[in-house]
Design a protein around this nucleic acid. Structure first.
Length: 699
DNA sequence: ATGACCAATTGA
DNA sequence: CAATTGGTCATG
C-alpha cells in the first residue's frame, strides 16, 4: 500500500514542462502567481489509468449537490482512490470533497481542473455509503454533503497512521442464539434464517423483563455465523453500552466496536477505521452509527425506534430507523426493529408485509407480568372532581411495600425537579415570570418560586387574572416524589435517577428507585415491582404522538420488571394507552393509531414536511414549490417564542414562521423531490434560507 | 459561496 | 452616456 502522505501528493512531478511546474508551484505556494503566465499550460500530466475523478464537493449549496469531474495528476494516481478525501479548486476556492469514482473519461465538455491534493488515500466513503447518502438526501429533501457530514467522522491524522488490529477468531454457538429467541413465535426461525445467510425482516416486540441486549447480541452472532457483519443502533449511549457488554459476553473480546461521539474524536475515528478497514464487522452505536461502513453487512437492528433521540437534530434531520431501512433495502440485509413498545411506523412495516412480527405468545406474557391500573376513570372524575384521590393510591403503596420484600422497586415519575410548574391556587391560571413570562417553578421544599427560563425569583407573586396571591403545584417532580417516599418508607434506601443525575444500573438490593422516563437504571435481576405515577401528565401534552409516546415510556419502565413481577400504573383505567399497557399489547395500540393517523392525514399515513424561516422567506418558498397531486399546504403560522432565550431588549431576531406541507404516503417521494427542487432553486437564486424538515419528530 | 455577464435603472 | 444595481448563470 502506498503511504497516504499529502506532501507526496502535491509534489509537482513533471519532466520538461517548466511552465506547468511553475504554475503548480504558484498555485501551491501563492495562488495568484500563475495568473501572470497567460499561456494555457495543459494541466499536470494526467494519470495513465482512469485519469478522471468524480468528486462530491462539500458545499452548502443545494443546486451544486452533484459530482464534478477532476483530472487526476499522475502523481496522485495511486492515492486518489474512490472514497478518499481530496481538496479541489471549485469556483475559485479550495474546498474539500470525496472521490466517489475513477473513470476513463468525462462527460464534461470543458477542460478539467486537476485535483489539488489527496488529503489521504484512506477510503473513508465506502461506495454503499455514498449510495445510501444519496437516498437519505433524497428522502429528507436535503443535500448529500450534509448527509456525508453525519456519515463520515472528522479525520484524525495521527490515528490514521496506526494500523487497525484484526479481530480474532470467534466461534458462534447457533444453538445458544436460537435458545435466546425461543420465547418468541417465529423467534427461532428468525435466528436460523440469519445463520443460514438469509435476510429476514422483523418487528420485534420484546416481552417484559427481556434481557434484550443479550437477545440482540445473539441475533448478531447468528449473522456472523453466516459470514456477514451486523449493525445495531440504540437511542442513547447507555443502551449502546449495554449491547456492547452483551456482544462481548456472546462474541468475546475485540469482535465489535462501540461507535459513539462520547469517546472523543481520536477514539471515534480509530473505531470508524477499524470498521471501514474490515477489522471489525460488528458495530453498536447511536444515530451516526447507522452509516458505519460494515463490510458484508447482513443485519441492521434499531432498538426502541420510537425514541426521539433517533431523530438527528442536524440537517437534513434523518431518522435512524429510516436510514437503516433504506440501507437494508439497498444492501439486501436483514432488518430487526425492536422494542418493548411498537412505533406506528413499525406497525406500518407489518401492515405492508415488509416485515414479520416476532412476539411472545399472549399466555406467556400473562405469566410473565401482572399489570394493573389504580385510579379513577375520567367518567368518575367528571361526576365527582374529588374522586382523583391520592397521587400515590393505596394499591401503588402496596405494590411498593410488597415489592420491597422481594427486590428493588422502580417508581417512574414523568417530570424532574421539585414542583416543575405552578398555577394560581384560586383560578388555576399558570404562573408566569413577570420579567420574561417563563413558567414559575419550585426547586425545593424551602425555596421561593423562580422562573424556569431566566431564573428570576418571584418573591411576591400575585395572579394577573384574579389577583390572588396563593400558588398551587399541579405537577410534582422526581425530587418531590423522592422526598414523599422517604417519609413513607423511612427505613428504605431511595435512589434517584433523573435529569443530570442519571444512573445506568442499581445494585439490585431492596431499594426504591425514583426515575424520570428514559433515565431508569437497569436492575441486575429486574425490579420486583414497577410503579408508574402521574400517567395523566404524560397524556396531557398536545402532540400527535402523545399517547404513543406515553405508552412507550411506560412499557420501557415496565419492561425492566423481573419475570413474574408486578406493574401498577396510576391513572385512568379507561384510557386506551393504559389499557394497551394492561394487556401488554403494544402492536395492537400502534395499529389502532394507524387508523387515527390515516384520518388525520399524518405520518406515517402521509408524508409531512415543515418549512421554517422568516415570514417572507416561507411565503416565497411556498411560491416556488410545485406540489405533487394530492398535496396541500397548511399555514404558515408564527412560531411561539422558544424557552431559555432571554427576552432582553435590542434583539432583532425576527420571529419564525412555519408552514406544513403534506402528501399522501404514495406521493411521499414526489413531495420530497419537489421540496428538494425548491431548495435548489432557492440556493441558486441566493434567497434567504428556509429550513425544511421531512417527517419531523414533533409537529 | 464567488465571479462573470447582461439588462435595466439611475444620475449627471 | 457612464455608473450602478439586480437578476441569472456557471462553477469540472
Amino acid at each position: 500500500m502506498t503511504e497516504p502522505t499529502a506532501e507526496a501528493a502535491s509534489e509537482p512531478p513533471l519532466p520538461g514542462l517548466g511552465e506547468v511546474v511553475d504554475r503548480l508551484r504558484g498555485e501551491v505556494g501563492r495562488g495568484r502567481a500563475a495568473a501572470a503566465t497567460r499561456s494555457r499550460p495543459a494541466a499536470a500530466e494526467p494519470a495513465e489509468v482512469d485519469p478522471v475523478a468524480r468528486v462530491l464537493v462539500e458545499l452548502p449549496l443545494a443546486h451544486l449537490d452533484r459530482p464534478f469531474d477532476y483530472l487526476v495528476p499522475a502523481a496522485m494516481a495511486e492515492q486518489a482512490v474512490p472514497g478518499c478525501r481530496v481538496k479541489v479548486r471549485f469556483a475559485g476556492q479550495d474546498v474539500d470533497g470525496f472521490v466517489v469514482a475513477r473513470a476513463a473519461a468525462s462527460d464534461h465538455e470543458g477542460r478539467l481542473a486537476p485535483l489539488r491534493r489527496v488529503v489521504s488515500a484512506e477510503p473513508v466513503l465506502a461506495p454503499e455509503i455514498a449510495t445510501l447518502s444519496a437516498a437519505v438526501a433524497e428522502r429528507y429533501a436535503g443535500t448529500r454533503s450534509d448527509v456525508l457530514r453525519l456519515a463520515v467522522p472528522p479525520r484524525h491524522a495521527t490515528t490514521e497512521k496506526e494500523p487497525s488490529a484484526a479481530a480474532g477468531e470467534t466461534r458462534v454457538d447457533v444453538a445458544a442464539a436460537r435458545a435466546a429467541w425461543s420465547a418468541y413465535d417465529a423467534g427461532e426461525s428468525l435466528v436460523a434464517h440469519l445463520a443460514e445467510g438469509g435476510s429476514p425482516r422483523a418487528v420485534w416486540t420484546a416481552q417484559p423483563g427481556e434481557d434484550w441486549p443479550a437477545a440482540v447480541a445473539q441475533a448478531v452472532a447468528a449473522t456472523l455465523a453466516s459470514g456477514r457483519g451486523a449493525l445495531v443502533c440504540t437511542p442513547d449511549h447507555k443502551d449502546a453500552a449495554r449491547v456492547s457488554a452483551a456482544l462481548t459476553a456472546v462474541l468475546g473480546d475485540g469482535q465489535h466496536v462501540l461507535l459513539a461521539a462520547e469517546s472523543g474524536p481520536a477514539a471515534r475515528y480509530r473505531d470508524f477505521l477499524a470498521v471501514s478497514r474490515g477489522a471489525r464487522r460488528v458495530v453498536v452505536g447511536t444515530r451516526s452509527a447507522a452509516f458505519a461502513p460494515v463490510r458484508d453487512l447482513g443485519l441492521v437492528v434499531v432498538w426502541d425506534d420510537g425514541d426521539d433521540l433517533h431523530a438527528e437534530p442536524r440537517a437534513p434531520y434523518p431518522h435512524t430507523r429510516e436510514v437503516l431501512l433504506l440501507r437494508a433495502q439497498q444492501q439486501g440485509t436483514a432488518a430487526l426493529v425492536g422494542g418493548f413498545a411498537a412505533s406506528v411506523e413499525a406497525a406500518y412495516l407489518l401492515r405492508t408485509g415488509w416485515a414479520h412480527h416476532v412476539s411472545a405468545p399472549r399466555e406467556a406474557l400473562r405469566r410473565r407480568v401482572s399489570v394493573s391500573v389504580a385510579g379513577a376513570t375520567e367518567q368518575e372524575l367528571a361526576r365527582d372532581p374529588y374522586a382523583r384521590g391520592a397521587r400515590v393510591p393505596t394499591a401503588a403503596y402496596q405494590a411498593i411495600r410488597d415489592g420491597l420484600e422481594r427486590g428493588p422497586v422502580l417508581v417512574q415519575t414523568p417530570r424532574s425537579g421539585y414542583a416543575p410548574s405552578l398555577a394560581c391556587e384560586r383560578c388555576r391560571t399558570p404562573a408566569r415570570c413577570a420579567r420574561c413570562s417563563g413558567p414559575l417553578r419550585l426547586t425545593g421544599p424551602a425555596t421561593p418560586p423562580a422562573c424556569g427560563w431566566c431564573g428570576e425569583a418571584a418573591e411576591r407573586w400575585s395572579c394577573p387574572e384574579c389577583g390572588h396571591a396563593g400558588l398551587r403545584a399541579p405537577v410534582l417532580g422526581a425530587d418531590r416524589t423522592t422526598e414523599e417516599l422517604g417519609r413513607t418508607f423511612p427505613q428504605t434506601v431511595i435512589v434517584q435517577s433523573s435529569g443530570d443525575g442519571v444512573r445506568a444500573t442499581v445494585t439490585g438490593g431492596r431499594e426504591i428507585v425514583v426515575a424520570t422516563p428514559g433515565a431508569e437504571p437497569v436492575a441486575p435481576e429486574g425490579y420486583a415491582a414497577v410503579v408508574l405515577l402521574d400517567t395523566w401528565l404524560s397524556l396531557a401534552r398536545a402532540d400527535l404522538r402523545t399517547d404513543e409516546e406515553a405508552l412507550r415510556r411506560w412499557l420501557n419502565a415496565a419492561g425492566l420488571v423481573a419475570p413474574g413481577g408486578v406493574v401498577v400504573a396510576v391513572g385512568d383505567p379507561g384510557h386506551p394507552a393504559l389499557q394497551a399497557l394492561v394487556r401488554w399489547d403494544p402492536l395492537g395500540f400502534a395499529e389502532r393509531e394507524i387508523g387515527e393517523r390515516q384520518e388525520a392525514r399524518l405520518p406515517p399515513a402521509a408524508r409531512v414536511a415543515t418549512l421554517t424561516g422568516t415570514s417572507g422567506a416561507v411565503e416565497e418558498a411556498l411560491g416556488l414549490l410545485t406540489l405533487p397531486s394530492g398535496a396541500e399546504v397548511l399555514g404558515p403560522v408564527p412560531q411561539p417564542a422558544g424557552p431559555g432565550k432571554d427576552q432582553g431588549p435590542g434583539r432583532d431576531e425576527r420571529p419564525e414562521w412555519r408552514a406544513v406541507v403534506r402528501a399522501p404516503r404514495a406521493r411521499g417521494a414526489a413531495l420530497s423531490a419537489a421540496l428538494r427542487e425548491m431548495q435548489r432553486l432557492r440556493s441558486a437564486r441566493k434567497l434567504e434560507a428556509v429550513r425544511v424538515q421531512v417527517d419531523p419528530a414533533a409537529l
